[in-house]
């Protein structure tokens, strides 16, 4: 569990805003059926309402979104989100706003949900298991961001 002032979603919000094409390319914006739209809304909600969790948020994720997203963009955004994770371990809450955005990126990247045990390190291992190439790239991006920030 994290406190509102421990997380910084501004950068993630900007990134998600850039990723969202507002229907220009999608031809018909389906809003609540879109992972990026949902993630963007979560980030925007956090910035507006200063909350850290959204009850039942996990159940609202549009996990049937089958659009193909840019792998590089998803990896970069996921790395960005992982940087905000506070490694809550036993206190991990699925409805944590960071977890909600992370899960959206995960569906977009892997097409499925991976186990998350409240630890970035364990997650990177899971990602590597799910897809070696993407997992390696995600780890490199995450470590690089950590080094430079």
């Amino acid at each position: 569990m994290i406190a509102e002032n421990e997380i910084n979603l501004q950068e993630i919000h900007e990134k998600l805003n850039n990723l969202c094409l507002d229907g220009e390319v999608c031809s018909n914006c389906e809003k609540n059926k879109c992972l990026i739209f949902f993630a963007k809304k979560v980030a925007s909600y956090v910035l507006t309402k200063k909350v850290t969790t959204i009850r039942q948020g996990m159940a609202m994720i549009p996990n049937h979104d089958l659009k193909t997203y840019s792998e590089d963009d998803m990896i970069e955004t996921l790395a960005m989100v992982l940087q905000q994770c506070k490694d809550c371990r036993d206190n991990h809450d699925d409805d944590c706003t960071i977890n909600l955005i992370r899960t959206c990126m995960e569906y977009a990247l892997f097409g499925d949900k991976l186990p998350y045990q409240g630890s970035v390190t364990l997650y990177l291992l899971e990602a590597q298991k799910a897809n070696g190439r993407v997992g390696d790239s995600l780890k490199a991006k995450y470590l690089n961001r950590k080094k430079t920030k």
Binding site: K31, N32, K41, S44, Y45, T48, K49
Partner: peptide, 13 residues
């Protein structure tokens, strides 16, 4: 009743 869930759903829409 807690209003938060509806609040986010409204925000989403």
């Amino acid at each position: 009743v807690m209003a938060e869930e509806d609040e986010f759903a409204d925000f989403l829409n």
